[in-house]
């Protein structure tokens, strides 16, 4: 007998005559309302990420300033990232085409992306490898991640985000910079992922 049949047989024997249970979902489901930008800003900042609020015309200038302040010269720009947002920046835009090796990614100064969804209540941004985001490694290996979030992408809560996302895509939920609580359960920012996360919220 295969282990598959063995395990499924054991499960069925264990469950013989066991009644099902009812699931009640009395918790707050999707709110279907836009997320509160101020709350999102505050919650991202709680993770010790850098946050700026800008209006649409100010994005290019803010991007340029952030990259300059960081001292970033070579920045990965995923396909589909809005070109006007980079217009004012004095950087070398590195494309992931042909795909960059891990070592090449390790050598750039940072990465700039958009996101698929952002969650106000938890201060989370979610990337789904869509336009302007690229494959998962792009936002992982570089030490600096600048993410531009449009107000329309900000949802109120976790159920809103789950409802909006497409599970078949590779998803990365990011809440602040890489961190650990493994030393005396104190949170320390900066381990293997980007040690600096900067978020621009376009209002």
């Amino acid at each position: 007998m295969s282990s598959r049949d063995l395990i499924l047989g054991r499960v069925r024997r264990a469950l013989a005559g066991v009644p099902d249970v009812e699931i009640t979902r009395a918790y707050r489901g999707p709110s279907d309302k836009p997320g509160d930008i101020r709350l999102f800003e505050e919650r991202v900042r709680d993770y010790r990420a850098v946050v700026h609020l800008v209006d649409e015309p100010g994005v290019a200038e803010r991007v340029a300033r952030s990259l300059a302040e960081r001292g970033a010269r070579r920045v990965v720009v995923p396909a589909g990232f809005p070109a006007p947002w980079l217009a004012a920046a004095d950087v070398e835009a590195v494309a992931d085409d042909p795909p960059l090796s891990a070592a090449e990614l390790d050598a750039v100064d940072g990465v700039i992306t958009t996101c698929a969804v952002a969650i106000a209540e938890t201060g989370t941004i979610v990337l789904d490898a869509g336009p302007g985001q690229g494959r998962r490694a792009l936002t992982l290996v570089p030490d600096y991640h600048l993410c531009v979030v449009r107000a329309a992408e900000v949802v109120a809560n976790v159920p809103d985000a789950v409802a909006r996302l497409v599970p078949a895509r590779p998803l990365t939920w990011i809440s602040g910079p890489s961190a650990t609580s493994d030393i005396e359960l104190n949170r320390v920012e900066g381990v293997h992922g980007p040690r600096t996360l900067e978020v621009l919220i376009v209002t």
Binding site: R25, Y27, G29, P30, R43, D46, Y47, I119, E121, T122, G123, T124, R136, V158, P159, V162, A163, P167, A168, R169, P170, L171, T172, W173, I174, S175, G176, P177, S178, A179, S181, G193
Partner: peptide, 26 residues
């Protein structure tokens, strides 16, 4: 169902609104 467990788990384990990284792949 993730809408439930992505709230229950981070708050219960590391005591955060959300853990820094969650990866999902299919």
């Amino acid at each position: 169902d993730l809408e439930v467990f992505l709230q229950l788990l981070p708050r219960s384990s590391t005591g955060e609104r959300m853990n820094p990284y969650t990866s999902m792949w299919t």
